[in-house]
Amino acid sequence: MSISLSKHKAIVLLGDSITEFSNVQHGLTTVLSDRYIRKLDVVNRGFSGYNTAMVLPIAKEIFAEAGKSGGLEIAAWTIFLGANDAVLFNTPSRQSIPLDAYVANLKEIISLVPSSVPVLVITPPIIQPHRWSAERGLAVDDRSEANTARYAQACRDLVAELGGKARLVDLWKAMETYRSDSSNNLDDLLLDGLHLTPEGYKLLNTLIFPILDELKLHPDDLEKTYPDWSNAIPEDTPPA
């Protein structure tokens, strides 16, 4: 029996470092890979430090390859961008993208996805600028919560504008709700003021899984690829 690498459909995770580094405990890549073993592949296409302008040509390349005969068949697509676009202008990081350009880039990335493929768009997270600056040894904050909030809102507005083309995963709002409880602290969710801790990823998972389940992508709704081992044994195999 030949094993085809294209046998599985895939969930593609497109984003920046928060996606790239999500192969940790409770991370999105880790948990989805476990959840969909032998049912869907999970393809991590996270790029540390990238903004929407940098990711756009990569997204085009991915879909050009997926569109070829025998190419990757995509079951769902997550897009998690904006944290780097929201870097403040006139700072050494040079990652900032104007808000209108962020929206235009994000809209174009979403437009690349065939209408038959579900798209989950994740807002950038709440950040802790002073903690991030301390971790990075920055003399001046290169990010602010208020500015990143503008990009999170623009993400919400775009998904609303697109109607059923995309589904919103409002991580910002979930973190805000978490923080509103006086017994909670964003330090629980953020590793360094920007990237997620295992608890942060757990929170993200609670938002994504119900949407996937609603889209009939619960593991119980999917067939395993290839038969159970007991059915794969050739009929003429003698008993042990």
Rank of each mutant, 00 (worst) to 15 (best):
S2I: 14
I3F: 13
I3R: 15
S4T: 08
S4C: 11
K7T: 08
H8P: 01
A10N: 06
I11N: 08
I11T: 05
L13R: 09
E20S: 05
S22T: 00
N23Y: 01
V24I: 14
L28G: 00
V31L: 10
V31D: 04
D34T: 13
R35M: 12
Y36M: 07
I37T: 12
L40Q: 08
L40F: 03
L40K: 07
V42R: 01
V43W: 08
V43F: 07
R45H: 05
F47M: 09
N51V: 06
T52G: 04
T52R: 05
A53P: 00
A53Y: 04
M54F: 10
M54G: 11
L56P: 05
A59Y: 01
A59F: 03
E61T: 04
I62T: 11
A64P: 03
E65R: 12
G67M: 10
G67E: 10
K68Q: 14
S69G: 12
G70I: 11
A75T: 03
W77L: 09
A83D: 07
N84M: 12
N84E: 11
N84F: 11
D85I: 08
D85T: 07
V87Q: 11
F89R: 13
P92D: 11
R94E: 13
Q95L: 15
Q95R: 15
P98I: 15
P98M: 15
P98E: 15
L99N: 10
Y102S: 07
N105E: 07
L106K: 02
L106E: 11
K107L: 04
E108N: 13
I109M: 13
I109V: 13
S116L: 07
S116Q: 08
P118W: 02
V119L: 02
V121T: 13
I122C: 13
I122R: 04
P124I: 06
P124F: 02
P125Y: 02
I127S: 06
R131E: 09
R131V: 14
W132L: 15
W132F: 12
E135F: 12
R136F: 06
L138N: 08
A139H: 02
V140G: 00
D141N: 15
D141L: 06
E145D: 06
E145P: 00
E145A: 14
T148S: 09
T148K: 00
R150Y: 00
Y151R: 11
A152S: 13
A154Y: 01
A154E: 05
A154R: 09
R156S: 10
V159F: 09
A160G: 10
L162T: 07
G163W: 12
G163A: 14
G164V: 13
R167T: 15
L168I: 14
L168H: 06
L168E: 09
L171E: 09
L171M: 12
L171K: 05
W172F: 13
A174L: 11
M175F: 10
E176C: 10
E176N: 12
R179D: 14
S180V: 08
D181E: 10
S182N: 12
S183A: 15
N185T: 14
D192T: 04
L194R: 01
L194C: 03
H195K: 02
T197H: 05
T197V: 02
E199W: 01
G200I: 00
K202G: 00
L204N: 00
L204E: 03
N205V: 00
F209K: 00
P210A: 01
I211S: 02
D213N: 03
D213H: 05
L217A: 03
H218C: 04
D221Y: 00
E223L: 06
K224V: 02
K224M: 04
S230I: 12
A232L: 06
I233A: 06
D236S: 14
